[in-house]
Amino acid sequence: MMQFLESEIQQYNKLVWSTLLGFDIQPEPGTFDFSSEDTVTGSVQVTGKWNGVITLYLPSLLVNKITETMFSLESGGANPETKKDAIGELINMIGGNIKSILPQPSVLSTPIFAMEGQSQQFPFTKKVTQCKFTCKDSSFALSLYEQKPAEKKTVSA
């Protein structure tokens, strides 16, 4: 079954990776299983008519390649700050493209990150799309989380 905006996400993601990095990425079937020990997560939030989160899950090895390519660094030259800058730029561009096909008006937040060994969750959302891709022998994923309708949990006020 086709997921929410699946083909558009695949198309925009492919376009951004190609124009920004010159990398060819291919959609892959299946779910993306990852260990937070070896994964970098970058997210931008969309607020407005549509509320949710766009999240990129990338293995460390691919993050290094992205960073080295984006900033013309030698192999092994990426550090945590340049990695954040590179992934921030990437998720910002992907998020901007996806936002353009979501209900308007909506605004995009600054990117936030979880580096290797950290994990990032979005309470009050449900995953509506996960697209898996492959690039340079590494798999990665792009997911959309949409705000759940208000749910009454028992809160003692």
Binding site: K84, D85, G88, T110, I112, Q120, F122
Partner: peptide
């Protein structure tokens, strides 16, 4: 925005 919750050893950093 919606809240994001991150498990970390250092507290959340928001570049920029």
């Amino acid at each position: 925005s919606l809240p994001a919750v991150t498990m970390t050893q250092h507290g959340l950093r928001i570049p920029g």
